[in-house]
């Protein structure tokens, strides 16, 4: 079992954004922050970014690649992909349910 994104505690939200960012390929820290801001509007600070990265690396959801000078890219692992799919699936279920109920209430 790869676990759940909720295992990250207060880093659950940032963790989901980071996994989503890494879903299209490896990125280093600053590139993750920029990407997250672009697709979600969330400005992530470095302390939070690395708090989440350390926890996800420990759980084997992401893995570091060889450093490029001082920058070290990270990539999604199979376990990380499973966690991301599971979380997005349950969020999708919530979105669909909410939309259906709003539509029913409006009709």
């Amino acid at each position: 079992m790869p676990g759940s994104i909720n295992d990250l505690g207060r880093f659950s939200g940032p963790g989901l954004l980071i996994l989503s960012s890494l879903a299209d390929g490896p990125k280093h820290g600053y590139a993750i922050m920029m990407d997250v801001q672009e697709f979600s509007g969330t400005k992530m600070e470095p302390g939070t970014l690395y708090g989440a990265l350390t926890r996800m690396e420990q759980r084997g959801w992401i893995e570091p690649l060889p450093p490029e000078e001082r920058r070290r890219p990270y990539r999604l692992t199979t376990a990380g992909e499973a966690v991301l799919r599971q979380q997005l699936g349950s969020m999708n279920q919530i979105v669909q349910t909410g939309q259906q109920r709003l539509a029913a209430a409006g009709a």
Binding site: H28, Y30, M33, E45, P46, T48, P67
Partner: peptide, 20 residues
């Protein structure tokens, strides 16, 4: 090293200090 690199590119605010 990684975080130092990020900080050099990041626009630092009070939130950054608090977060670190």
């Amino acid at each position: 090293d990684e975080v130092t690199d990020v900080l050099e590119q990041h626009r630092v605010s009070y939130a950054t200090w608090f977060d670190l």
